[in-house]
Design a protein around this nucleic acid. Structure first.
Length: 478
RNA sequence: GGUCCCAUCGACUAGGGGUUAGGUCGUCACUCUUUCACAGUGAAAACACGGGUUCGAAUCCCGUUGGGACCGCCA
């Protein structure tokens, strides 16, 4: 069997959609699993949707997720160009070839006419596709129109009364009557190809063996197969992945939450967690596998097309959060600190004191579902004074509390600097000496030091706060 | 509306003729921790429905219902 060649072919709309990420990931995993090639191709055939910097952004995002491609923009390869907008003449040549062979034809309707046609069809409850009227034009009429330089498109001449059948690796055998297939525009009046033409031509020219993409494409496969046959080309294997869904089971959309991978990265979801989580949406390693935490290497090793699910999967942030928290807890502290830096900076924390930030981060990471929650948890380490009110203040003003503060302060004063174990020891001593214990002992200290009733272990907090601050906070209530 | 796809706990899923239908997230309870979180233990929680086939169906077939995708000179 020849080498596997798969491609991820996004249109550069400005950001990487979660659904696209999953498609890219499956392509990537399959290529790496089989030792094949993963190709990135930019489908920029819609001039009206050109977005500045989209490709750079896309590549950057893919890189940060560890999805490196073998051929594509910037990197190059033997099957370029990898921007479709750079091979307009090729698509045109193929479109013309089709016309010549009788598999396609010129059509001269304007967008407005088509719009009208669709409206009527909808009104009458008919299929809204093109009514194939352009097929009735005589050769002379076409020639005359062309001579007059009327704007034209080239449309696919779908063979009527046939059945197109194909085997999808995840969906199984699918049959569609050609009468239901639209005479799709292949070449637009601006000279650009549509997705359908460009996709088929490029997939063939680039030697793509497996088309792995979202299920939303499944109804256009017949058009593509008709094209492959018209050209006399082999049809690649079809692999249509189930959609990723909103909680209401509709196709994942912007309206119902963040959909751009960049947004998730920015919020502090770790690339490893994102990859791990997305891989499990619509895919599962199979029987006997109860674990769900996989590194990229493990995913590559386990990934097969046959284990892709048939039905759509709801994107659940709760599980992503859990998984991300897991990765945050396990992550290399130095790398995590690097990633966390922007969030500290944003809170105006002195980022020169990296060691201290590292310590803070290490003690709060257990609380973090994502890095952007850092601000909620670091306040207590950077307070200059503690603000309390209500029943917390009442607790601090208890006689027993004052005793605790006085005695503890004395002991802290005698310390060189605060080590967690030593601090704990001192608290114990205060307990035995004063007879104050339990909540009466710990709660006031916690509130005095942090202004909060919960958080990480007190000794750890005391250490990070340092002797001076601890004393100052304690003495305020003596 | 037409065509196509899909159907196991709330979510992600395992299983795929005989199982107490398993795991993970979430939820709840308990334990641990003098707090919260983490961790641990446990609980509640599912085969959409109706017909076949079969000794036996969640599993195979058909239908119904429900959901979804697509029906652009967007991709």
């Amino acid at each position: 069997m020849s080498e596997v060649r798969v491609r991820f072919a996004p249109s550069p709309t400005g950001y990487l959609h979660l659904g696209s990420l999953r498609t890219a990931l499956f392509n990537f995993l399959y290529a790496r699993h089989t030792g094949g090639k993963f190709i990135l191709r930019v489908e920029d055939t819609d001039q009206t949707r050109y977005v500045e910097g989209a490709v750079e952004n896309l590549i950057e995002t893919m890189n940060s997720l560890g999805l490196d491609y073998d051929e594509g923009p910037v990197k190059g390869g033997d099957c370029g160009p990898y921007y479709q907008s750079e091979s307009l003449d090729i698509y045109k040549k193929y479109a013309l070839e089709l016309v010549e062979k009788g598999y396609a034809y010129y059509a001269f309707e304007t967008s407005e006419e088509l719009e009208e046609m669709r409206k009527m069809a909808k009104l009458e409850g008919r299929m809204t596709s093109y009514d194939r009227r352009g097929r009735n034009l005589t050769e002379d009429e076409v020639k005359a129109n062309l001579d007059r330089e009327l704007p034209y498109v080239i449309r696919l001449k779908v063979p009527l009364n046939e059945e197109v059948k194909f085997d999808d690796i995840v969906k199984g055998t699918i049959k569609i009557e050609t009468n239901m297939v639209d005479d799709q525009v292949l070449l637009k009046s601006d000279g650009f190809p549509t997705y359908h033409l460009a996709n088929v031509v490029d997939d063939h020219l680039m030697g793509i063996t497996h088309i792995i993409r979202g299920e939303e494409w499944i109804t256009s496969v017949p058009k593509h197969i008709i094209l492959y046959k018209a050209f006399g080309w082999d049809v690649p294997e079809m692999v249509h992945c189930p959609l990723i869904l909103n909680p209401d089971k509709t196709k994942l959309s912007k309206r119902q939450g963040d959909v751009a991978v960049e947004d998730y990265l920015q919020k502090g979801y770790l690339p490893e967690a994102l990859v791990n989580f997305m891989a499990l949406l619509g895919w599962h390693p199979g029987e006997g596998e109860s674990d769900e935490l996989f590194s990229m290497d493990q995913l590559i090793e386990k990934f097969t097309l046959e284990r892709i699910q048939t039905s759509g999967a709801v994107f659940s942030v709760e599980k992503l959060d859990w998984m991300n928290n897991h990765y945050i807890k396990e992550y290399d502290l130095d790398k995590l600190t690097d990633m966390a830096m922007p969030f500290f900076k944003h809170e105006h924390v002195d980022t020169n004191d990296r060691d201290r930030i590292k310590e803070v981060l290490d003690t709060i990471r257990v609380y973090l579902n994502k890095l952007d929650e850092i601000p909620e948890h670091i306040g207590m380490f950077y307070n200059d004074e503690i603000k309390v009110g209500g029943h917390q203040e009442d607790i601090l003003k208890e006689d027993t509390s004052k005793t605790v503060f006085r005695e503890l302060a004395k002991k802290v004063e005698a310390m060189d600097k605060i080590e967690p174990d030593a601090f704990k020891e001192k608290m114990k001593e205060v307990q035995t000496e004063t007879g104050i214990k339990g909540k009466q002992l710990f709660k006031p200290i916690r509130i005095a030091l942090t202004g909060s009733e919960d958080g990480p272990e007190l000794p750890k907090i005391a250490q990070i706060l340092g002797k001076d601050k601890v004393l100052r906070f304690l003495k305020r209530w003596e």
